[in-house]
């Protein structure tokens, strides 16, 4: 029995075959307008990341103006904690590095960094680095490679990488590398495509991609592509649109993008659109959300889709924003 096929997803004839940009614009514009929605009602705490997903997706489609800029900037301002300098996911919530990075990405897209206390953000990020170089997500202290990435992503956008001990930070990320070339959330953890993206992105920003076992890792990454064309995040798991981004962007930074079958992946991503509501879901036929919508569009952009703006593989932001900031994250040829 070809058992691994059981885990696969087959697109039937009813799934979309074209990119439905207009549908996605209205999906993102209207998302959250219906506050009776149970899921929306209980997800206040990650509103800041939601704004980043929606805004970046709209910008990639050339529709940045669809969302109210001043309202969003004001929201970010209100979420900054005057004491620690960190930014929270929503008003009343505690600051966290995950939301701080989203807020800085949003403000960079709008070119409105002046709206907040930037020195406060730098102080906050600096305060979260531990002696071994790792970062915690907030003052309570769990360590995770995601937070190392968030820290350097934030500081590089603010041009203040000097605020932290970069060498130590690199040492920690290196200690999370596994025999397969991949990375997990902390030392000894299993390799996971999402965390590999964080670590490769971290090394791209710190210009230290040299420590990666390039082909070992690229091999593992390209084995994530399944016969359906979709990519999974770990062996024998289901394909998911968000891994299209994490795997593809990592391969792009490693200069091995051509190890993926673009046509098959594109077909899979396009089949994850909802032709009625708009938006992308994890797999064909599931409920769509802004998170999968951004990563679906970003992956299509990385594969050169002409209807979308070019995306930067390290920052997951439009390339033009990165160019304007004169940032040059490392990319291997």
């Amino acid at each position: 029995m070809a058992t691994s096929m059981v885990n696969e997803v087959k697109g039937d004839d009813s799934v979309p075959k074209e990119l439905l940009l207009e549908k996605h614009v209205s999906f993102l514009r209207e998302y959250g307008q219906n506050e009776d929605n149970f899921e929306y009602g209980i997800t206040d705490y990650l509103r800041m990341s939601g704004v980043y997903w929606g805004l970046t997706a709209l910008d990639l489609m050339g529709k940045l103006k669809e969302l109210p800029e001043n309202e969003i900037v004001e929201f970010v301002q209100k979420c900054q904690d005057p004491e620690s300098g960190g930014i929270s996911g929503c008003i009343n919530h505690d600051p966290h590095l995950l939301h701080t990075v989203s807020a800085i990405q949003v403000l960079c897209i709008y070119d409105r960094l002046d709206a907040i206390n930037v020195e406060g953000v730098i102080k906050y990020v600096k305060s979260l680095q531990k002696d071994d170089g790792s970062f915690t997500g907030d003052k309570w202290g769990e360590v995770d490679t995601r937070f190392s990435f968030c820290a350097v992503l934030t500081l590089s956008l603010l041009k203040r990488m000097d605020a932290i001990d970069v060498d130590k930070a690199v040492e920690f990320v290196e200690s999370c590398m596994n025999f397969d070339g991949g990375f997990g959330s902390r030392p000894l953890s299993e390799s996971h495509a999402g965390l590999i993206y964080c670590c490769v992105g971290f090394l791209s920003i710190t210009q230290r991609l040299d420590i990666i076992k390039r082909d070992t890792l690229a091999w593992w990454l390209c084995e994530r592509q399944l016969p359906s064309g979709g990519l999974n995040g770990r062996p024998e798991k289901l394909p998911d649109v968000c891994y299209s981004w994490w795997v593809l962007s990592s391969l792009s930074m490693l200069g091995r993008l051509h190890w993926i079958d673009f046509a098959a992946l594109e077909k899979f991503i396009v089949s994850c659109q909802d032709s009625e509501t708009g938006g992308f879901s994890d797999r064909p036929g599931d409920i769509t959300d802004p998170y999968h919508t951004l990563f679906g569009l970003a992956a299509l952009s990385l594969m050169g889709n002409g209807a979308l703006k070019r995306v930067n593989p390290t920052y997951c932001m439009p390339q033009e924003v990165i160019d304007k900031l004169e940032l040059k994250p490392q990319i291997l040829n």
Partner: peptide, 11 residues
């Protein structure tokens, strides 16, 4: 119980 992903509440 309803939504255990809210970090602030655990904090």
């Amino acid at each position: 119980l309803i939504n255990p992903e809210v970090r602030t509440f655990w904090n």
